[in-house]
Design a protein around this nucleic acid. Sequence first.
DNA 1: CCTAAAGGCAACTAGGAGGTTGCATAAATG
DNA 2: CATTTATGCAACCTCCTAGTTGCCTTTAGG
Lengths: 116, 116
Amino acid sequence: MSMLESNPPSSPTQGNPAPVFAALGDPTRLALISRLGDGQARSIAQLSNGFELTRQGVTKHLRVLEEAGIVASSRVGRENHFSYVPEPIEGVRSYLDSVCEQWDDALSRLKAFVES
Amino acid sequence: MSMLESNPPSSPTQGNPAPVFAALGDPTRLALISRLGDGQARSIAQLSNGFELTRQGVTKHLRVLEEAGIVASSRVGRENHFSYVPEPIEGVRSYLDSVCEQWDDALSRLKAFVES
DNA sequence: CCTAAAGGCAACTAGGAGGTTGCATAAATG
DNA sequence: CATTTATGCAACCTCCTAGTTGCCTTTAGG
């Protein structure tokens, strides 16, 4: 039984932004995202180059990103290719937009009150 | 010596987004930010209402947000008022904008290549 | 002064995160 | 088939995090 689907029942791109933010809260993972952001899939060995980590360390970070839905993996021969998935980060970006918008509205109301 | 400035030498609003993302990676802290996002400062006792945490638990989360620069505290009598500081979240928002932009550019190049 | 409200500080626990090492497995290659 | 390459798995370690509890300090109000 080789169930290596993609363990979807855990935490896909839910409306919950906290796990995605937590996955973004590490410089190594941000660097991995930056590398994969060009749309090209890469193997673990490729992604391990340039980090002062062991391959296993990089693998763990990739698993964190995968469980947050930010990257997806697919086996190609003996290699495991990771690719960027844009939806989760677009989701937290719009979440931050709403936070900033709330702040701007509060500022506007304050300004209107002061000038009244 | 009452040095309660704001311990600035640690990690203000640096260009490093990872600590801010890490601070955002908790639902309790996101809820606290949402409350303070209306621009009104609140005491710890006020902010503790509505959470199933002890006051000390909420205090710890507020300290995490403060060290990330997302909120600021100021003593008012016997109360400690926390207020929202917009810069760090605006910073990580623009960081996410650049990530999404990199992705969009990659998609455009891929599309142009396929259509060529 | 005494009391109640608001916090701060320190200790302690449980669990997860980041990272390592060692060994096993699968696939490409000669 | 033997070997190298690319991973996976499991155990282990250390440190941080989330959360609690208990107690001490400061302040507002009678």
